[in-house]
Computed example of a mutant assay.
Amino acid sequence: MTHTLALVIYMAILTWLALLVASLIRVKGWTPSGTMIALGNRENLPAATPFAGRAERTARNTLENFVFFAAIALVAHATGATSPKVATGAEIFFWARVVYIPVYYAGIAYLRTAIWVVSIVGLAMMISAIL
């Protein structure tokens, strides 16, 4: 397996964790009543706190960007694009996303956007190496 494909797997794990954590934060899954909500059908969820809202938006953004990353990485692999720019772009994307999540949780608006732009630069590097 190539390093880029390994990063797809790592990004899938990170995305799943972001979704899981956002869900647990929303229902306060560490409490007995929150555990019951988390194990149920999630009807009548409590109103999202500002932190829970950020966690949910972080998870959604992570999922949306993972789809693009996975598609680009898989096309690179399928076409045999072996330029170091593909691997470097994938690394940039992955590590930017690792940093993005806690920054978004903390609510640091402009830094969050700057980190997102860095991740997009990583995707652009990958695409430019494929085309």
Rank of each mutant, 00 (worst) to 15 (best):
A114V: 14
Y104N: 00
V98E: 01
T82E: 14
A71R: 06
I13E: 07
M126R: 04
V67R: 04
A109S: 12
A73P: 00
A12F: 13
P84D: 11
G122P: 03
A114F: 13
P50Q: 04
S33Y: 08
T49G: 05
T88A: 15
V118I: 15
M126H: 02
T49W: 11
M126Q: 09
T2K: 05
T31D: 07
G53D: 10
E64V: 14
A59F: 02
V67F: 09
V103M: 05
A18M: 12
F68G: 06
G40S: 14
A76R: 06
Y104Q: 02
S23P: 00
T4Q: 11
A129H: 04
M1L: 12
H77Q: 14
K85P: 00
K28A: 12
T4G: 03
I108K: 14
L123T: 05
H77E: 15
I101P: 00
A38E: 05
I13D: 05
P50E: 01
R42K: 15
L45M: 09
L24V: 01
L39F: 12
A22P: 10
F68V: 06
V99I: 15
I92F: 01
W16S: 10
I92W: 02
T62A: 05
I9V: 14
V117G: 11
F66L: 12
L45T: 09
Y104R: 11
A81K: 09
F51H: 13
A78D: 09
G80M: 12
N44T: 03
R26K: 11
V86N: 03
L39R: 13
G29I: 04
I9Y: 13
L131Y: 06
F93C: 04
Y104K: 06
K85V: 10
I120N: 11
V98R: 08
S83W: 01
A90S: 12
I101F: 04
I13W: 12
R97H: 01
V117S: 12
N65Y: 07
V67G: 09
S33H: 13
I72K: 06
T62S: 10
A22R: 00
T82C: 09
F94W: 08
G80D: 10
L14V: 08
A87L: 05
I92Q: 03
I92K: 02
G40T: 06
L5I: 09
F69Y: 06
N44L: 09
V103C: 08
R97I: 02
S23T: 10
V121H: 03
W30Q: 07
H3Q: 13
L39N: 12
I108R: 08
A76W: 00
I108T: 05
A12C: 13
K85A: 15
A124K: 01
I108H: 11
I130H: 07
L131G: 15
L123K: 03
T58V: 05
A47Q: 13
A18T: 14
L19E: 11
A96S: 15
A71Y: 01
A59V: 02
F94K: 04
V103N: 01
R42D: 01
R42A: 09
P46G: 09
G53S: 14
E56Y: 02
G89S: 08
A124T: 14
V67I: 15
M125G: 02
L14K: 13
H77I: 00
